[in-house]
Design a protein around this nucleic acid. Structure first.
Lengths: 113, 113
DNA sequence: TCTTGATATGTCGAATTTCTAGGTGTAATA
DNA sequence: TATTACACCTAGAAATTCGACATATCAAGA
C-alpha cells in the first residue's frame, strides 16, 4: 500500500482486511479493488499492484477468497474474486480485532501527563 | 508486540509511535515502557523484549530518543530514555498520520453494501 | 540455603508483509 | 501511431516483529 508520503508504514496487516471488505460488497476484479480502496479512502490509500496481487493470491491460498475468470462490462477478461464463508468469518474477526486495537492505541495516545 | 492471540499482526509500524508516546510522558527505562503499554492498553498489547529493545535502539539511532544509565527507585541500573526534540516532532507527525489512516480505514469498513 | 520469579538488558534467525521495479498484453483515444 | 487506461503477474530488497535464547541482579519463600 503506497502513500502519498509515508502512510504505508502504518498499514502492515491491514491490507488483507480492506480487500476482504471490498470484495464482500460483491464480486470484483483486482484492478477495481485497488481503485475502490483509493476512491473510498479519498486517496489516502493507494494500493500498488506489487502489494495487491500477492495479497489476493495469499487470500485465495488461505481459502478466504475464490476467483473466477469473467468478462468485465467493457468486455475484457478479468479475474473476479468473491469472499468464501471462511473469508466472511475472517473479515468479521479482523474487524473486531481492528476495533480493539485502535481502541487500545487511542487509550495510549490519549494518556495525558 | 505480542497478542493474546493474533493482535500483533495488526500493529506493524505502530510500536515506534507508542514507545515515543510513553517516553514523551517522562524518562523511563525499557522494561517499564513495555509494562506501561500493557497496562494502559488493558493487556491488549504485550510488547515482547525481542520487539522492544530493537525498537529502542532503532529510535535512538534515528535520533528520536536519547538514553542515559541511571538507577531505578529500587536501586538498580537501567537505561532511561527521553524524547529528543526531533522525536517530539516525529511523534506529532505520526499521530496525525495515525488519525488519517484510521479515518480512512473507517471509511472503508463503514461502507455499506 | 536454594530456588523461583520479577526486574532489566540484549542478540539472533525466521517469518511476514510491503515496496520498487520490472514484465505481458489488449483496447480505446489522441 | 503513440500513449494512456485497463488488467494480470513476478522477483528481489527492505523493514518489522516474533520466538527463543542468553545474561545478571535481587527479593521472597520453601
Amino acid at each position: 500500500m503506497a502513500p502519498t508520503d509515508n502512510k504505508s508504514e502504518f498499514l502492515k496487516g491491514t491490507l488483507d482486511m480492506l480487500i476482504l471488505k471490498i470484495v464482500a460488497m460483491g464480486p470484483v476484479h483486482g484492478y477495481a479493488i485497488s481503485q475502490r480502496i483509493q476512491q473510498i479512502s479519498k486517496d489516502i490509500f493507494q494500493v500498488q499492484q506489487g502489494s495487491l496481487y500477492p495479497a489476493l493470491h495469499r487470500l485465495e491460498d488461505r481459502g478466504l477468497l475464490q476467483a473466477e475468470w469473467r468478462n468485465t462490462e467493457t468486455g475484457r477478461e478479468a479475474k473476479f474474486y468473491s469472499v468464501t464463508r471462511k473469508g466472511r468469518h475472517q473479515l468479521e474477526s479482523e474487524m473486531r480485532n481492528w476495533e480493539q486495537i485502535t481502541g487500545a492505541v487511542a487509550l495510549i495516545l490519549g494518556t495525558a501527563e
